[in-house]
Write a protein that binds this DNA or RNA. Sequence first.
RNA 1: GGCGACGUAGCCAAGUGGUAAGGCAGAGGUCUGCAAAACCUCCAUCCCCAGUUCGAUUCUGGGCGUCGCCU
Length: 303
Amino acid sequence: MERGRAAMTQVPVVVGPTGIGKSQLAFELAVQLGGEIVVADSRQVYQRLDIATNKPSDEHRRQVRYHMIDFVDPATNFNAAHYVEGARGAIDDIASRGMTPIVEGGTMLYVDALCDGFSLTGIPPNPSLRAELEALDVARLRARLLAMDPDPGVDLDNPVRMIRAIEIVDAAGPPLRRLRTRTPPTWQPLRIGLTAGLATIDRRLDERSHLQVERGLVAETQAALDAGVPPTAPVLTGIGYAEALAHIRGELTLEELPLAMARSNRRYARRQLRWWRRDSRVLWFEIEPDPLPGILKHVRKAA
RNA sequence: GGCGACGUAGCCAAGUGGUAAGGCAGAGGUCUGCAAAACCUCCAUCCCCAGUUCGAUUCUGGGCGUCGCCU
């Protein structure tokens, strides 16, 4: 069958909370399996901002080929649909060359959109409509949305979700639900979760935050500003950069900076854990004893 | 030692004689094109004792504590 090899291809997908060593594990997995890594991360796609986005080291990049990082102008916006398109292409490309694609990431929506094949409705953002809708309060947004689609299936308290819903229905007509479909990819995701106790995660995040500041996070942020990246750009709203900006504005001392970063990271890590722990398809591995052998065994058995 | 102010959740902080705003942090949850975002839910009986009162976190007295000023 034509879809033959591709259809059967198992793609390891390494997920888990930030700061737990996913990147390192994916690297080791790639080395062992002869693979290339497709990062699923909404911030690593942007060029230059390396420190707080936790991009792979030059050393790792020399040994393993990485995809979906470092290719978007930081002054622009990138989104889940762009990601899925690029990542699917990357995976097909890797597989076509006989290598093993390995997805690794932290952005929950990106991972699920890619691996579950979310349609994302196919309607692109409409900036002028968004600008208009952003001026409305929640009640008005809700009324406007319900007038177009009485049962849109979105959080009616959430302005961001309602604006998106209105945008879709405005372009494609109701009902919204019919546009949100799933078309699984031609390959089989093998979800591997990396986890650890919260105390361990918190300690690592604390250490990493201090390290990032020492490595020049503030200078990197300032350089981005100097290069014309607006403070409102998505990258600069990310963990680390948001705090660095606050420091540059004088709202945080240099001593407070890593503490604030660690706090944001803790919150994010917990959200990631909550997102994936409800997904029964994820097989979890503790990071404490080296999880690589067990993961390799699992991957090889599945293949 | 004297004088003054203050003492509300982990932190910041409103407030009233009738049974405690809000913010941050924390916990849980939602999630199909901004997702490291956005949104939802939960989270205190007001320093201690006595008194006044139908009823005190809110009034009075005492104690303890903190801060400031003075000697």
